[in-house]
């Protein structure tokens, strides 16, 4: 298949979506007044925003739904019937996900596509989703992607990379199945000017100034007894915003519930290390009852434990937790503090 770059005038987004709709379910962020756009199944008529310009909720709902039935047990008429849903194999195109969000799927893949414990539901959705990552015209104020990783390597994580050129979207296919969605009359070949413009957009993204912790070894610097946990815990109000809006947080709970007479359902739903009852054991013991260990868990999990487990950093710098924390706990500040405290550590100690 030809891997040719394409350009879509923003006026023709509807037409492009229409063209895809026959073959795929199209999901994209839908704009809403004054609040973050949300990924939904869309049609050409929706006010979708695929240029990355709006604040948006992460796309993980489409791979790891907020509520997902795993099993239903029915005992009507004395018969025990057990139903488990078949993994959903709907071909999807996901438009308008920020590049750091698509990189975050890499983190989710480590958890759910592990050789030993492959999650069939996640796997089916992941295999059937064509990801189109977007690099917006202007990086958001809260982004710190360049401080956590070499973003050049992220280009390979999407099926199609797209760039906002202001009046048009520039598509660059990365994989064959990505190239397969780039057909139809709505798309045009890029001009030399547009090729140069998309390089400019990439540069603006890749050159977001580094935070002071960038390049420092967070893995080495984050320590169990750092004073920053106390500082965070003092201000934290123990809501779940930072983790629920995070594109790479994956924790879930499994619950059994009565649904009607003679019937129960088992489902999974979001859960977060920031809730007090997250680690509450059946017998009453709770190892993370206090806020200090919960504050520690979130950062250590992202920058230390997942690195030990999977060799990755589980934060992609999308900045949602920075923007949405109601008490302005800024993960960047915490990481800077950690590094400035420990930076003087003599080399031989490391």
């Amino acid at each position: 298949m030809m891997m040719t770059d394409k350009v879509l005038s923003k006026e023709k987004i509807g037409e492009f979506v229409d063209g895809l709709s026959g073959r795929y379910t199209v999901v994209a962020p839908v704009r809403r007044d004054g609040s973050p756009a949300e990924f939904r199944d869309v049609t050409a008529q929706d006010s979708i925003v695929i240029d990355g310009s709006a604040a948006l909720m992460p796309p993980k709902d489409y791979l790891l739904p907020r509520y997902e039935r795993l099993m239903r047990v029915d005992t009507r008429d004395g018969q025990v019937q057990i139903e488990a849903p078949v993994p959903e194999a709907v071909p999807r195109v996901m438009l308008g996900a920020w590049l750091p969000d698509v990189k975050a799927l890499d983190v989710l893949d480590k958890v759910f596509l592990d050789d030993k414990f492959k999650d069939p539901y996640y796997a089916a959705r992941r295999e059937n989703t064509v990801t189109v990552a977007v690099v917006p015209l202007k990086p958001r104020w809260s982004w710190f992607c360049t401080s956590v990783d070499d973003v050049t390597e992220w280009k390979s994580k999407a099926d199609v990379l797209s760039y906002d050129l202001g009046d048009a979207i520039y598509f660059e296919p990365i994989t064959e199945r990505g190239a397969a969605i780039l057909d139809g009359a709505a798309l045009a070949d890029p001009t030399d000017g547009q090729v140069a413009a998309k390089e400019g957009v990439w540069k603006a993204f890749a050159e977001v100034p580094h935070c002071a912790f960038a390049g420092k070894d967070l893995y080495e610097n984050l320590c169990w007894d750092s004073p920053i946990w106390d500082d965070i815990a003092q201000r934290c109000v123990s809501c779940g915003v930072c983790t629920y809006v995070c594109p790479s947080c994956s924790c879930f709970d499994v619950q059994d519930e009565v649904c009607g007479s003679n019937c129960i359902e088992r489902y999974r739903c979001r859960d977060t290390c920031q809730f007090e009852d997250f680690t509450l054991m059946g017998a009453g013991h709770n190892p993370r009852e206090q806020k200090v260990p919960r504050a520690r868990q979130r950062l250590m999990h992202k920058f230390k434990y997942q690195r030990e487990q999977f060799g990755i950093t589980a934060c992609t710098g999308c900045g949602r937790c920075v923007e949405m924390c109601p008490v302005n706990i800024d993960i960047r500040d915490a990481l800077c503090t950690v590094c400035s405290d420990r930076i003087e550590t003599p080399a031989e100690v490391k």
């Binding site: 809501c239 629920y244 979001r270 009852d277 109601p326």
Partner: peptide, 28 residues
């Protein structure tokens, strides 16, 4: 749209219950 993050409850000075009804397992 609610994602059940409970931020509304956690920032509310009047929501000071030791155990919120929403967190109770029995009764649920």
């Amino acid at each position: 749209r609610c994602i059940r993050c409970y931020a509304c409850r956690q920032v509310c000075p009047s929501c000071y219950c030791t155990t919120c009804f929403a967190d109770r397992i029995e009764p649920k």
